[in-house]
Simulated scan of single mutants.
Amino acid sequence: MKALDLFSGPGGLSLGMKRAGIEPVACVEKSKDAVATYDAHTPDAEHYRSDIRSISFERYRGNVDVVFGGPPCQPFSTGGLRKGTADARNMFPEFMRVLKEVRPAAFLAENVPGLATRNRVQYLGELLSEFETLGFNVSWNVVSAADYGVPQKRRRLIIVGMKKGTFWFPKPTHGPDAHIPHVASGSVIDKASPLGEPPDCPVVYAKYPDPRRSPYAGHVYNGGGRPIDLSTPCHTLLASAGGYKTHWIDTMDIAPEYSAHLMAGGAPRDGAVPGARRMTLEESALIQTFPADMWFAGSRSSQYTQVGDAVPPMLGHALGVALRRQLEGATICPMTHYQSEASLPLLMTA
């Protein structure tokens, strides 16, 4: 089964799709480093390192079964400028154009949950309607990568369209509603022995901390990085990691004690946090379920960005297997799959 990979980044979604039997024949990505990374693991695909708006895809009509990809999420993220459709980085119109030119049997689009919340939900409704006018039966939902074996609480909006039939999402394989517990971040991170070289960015107590009930939430330390609870899936990795926004390992278990201290009315501390070290690139890649020997092109900052921007390959694999089997006409078992009942507006926190 052949596919086009749009806004591919380093190819996290593509790696999962390949394992599922959906082979990318071409990818589109503007980042030079991300394309070099992608080329290293999928050299047979045609690589377009240019603005998608300058490319015609009509040559792929009749030659690919699936179009998949994640249009830039910044316009709909709950962080950043929050410009939505007014943001020049909104590439959903280009995703639609590719579907019109290629006319695949199915598509899969990935984005942030913020697209289904607050004032952006109207645009999501418009997108779903436009997909339907192109002849697709559309299903969508917000899924957590942790529910499919990823040691990370990464929630993503997934939209799937099929020309024949309606997509059934795979049921979670991990977590309280499954037979296998969530995978803890400590399964791939050794507290005592870092894999690779941590960024040289000290973790410092915040001057004006804003604690939460959980020691691993709130804004208690400098930068956007948070301490990781190694007994559970970790927080979503940030594309801006590599410096002070990199999550960190609490090797001396300071976070629970300090959180209790603050919640009891204790005074903020100053200086560096004892025993704190930032997550390495290699650890971040494993949290995202990239292969252990995965190579990333570019500077360290670029490598962290590629890892943080990517769809976890393990999540891509779970979705890809379900999509391929349904396109091939396999009988779907309600014990392992479900039809999404998500409706607008989706009242949730992104």
Rank of each mutant, 00 (worst) to 15 (best):
A184E: 09
K245E: 12
G84K: 11
G316L: 10
A272I: 14
T133L: 08
L323Q: 09
I159R: 00
G298C: 09
V64P: 07
I228H: 00
A36Y: 05
D200N: 14
G224L: 10
R97C: 07
L237M: 12
L99V: 07
Q74G: 11
S31Q: 12
P202Y: 03
D44G: 03
Y148A: 04
M162C: 09
F167W: 10
M348G: 01
H174S: 07
E126N: 14
H41P: 11
R156D: 09
L124N: 01
G161V: 14
D39H: 15
P215G: 12
H317A: 12
K153V: 09
M17L: 15
L238A: 10
M314Y: 02
H337E: 07
G196E: 05
V150I: 11
Q306R: 05
T280A: 00
N119W: 06
G224D: 12
E132T: 13
C73P: 03
S129Q: 14
R155S: 13
V204K: 13
P334R: 13
E197L: 11
Q303H: 01
R324C: 05
L315Y: 04
A145H: 14
A184Y: 13
R59D: 13
I52Y: 01
G135Y: 11
P291L: 02
S193K: 14
W168S: 14
E257W: 01
A86M: 02
C73D: 09
Q122M: 06
N111W: 07
N119M: 13
E282R: 00
P172L: 07
A105N: 09
T42S: 11
M1T: 09
G271V: 06
Y216G: 03
M348F: 10
E94K: 07
D147R: 12
E23S: 01
L319D: 08
R61E: 13
P43A: 03
K164G: 00
Y123C: 04
A285H: 01
I249D: 00
A184M: 05
G165M: 08
H182T: 08
I22W: 01
V150G: 08
R53L: 04
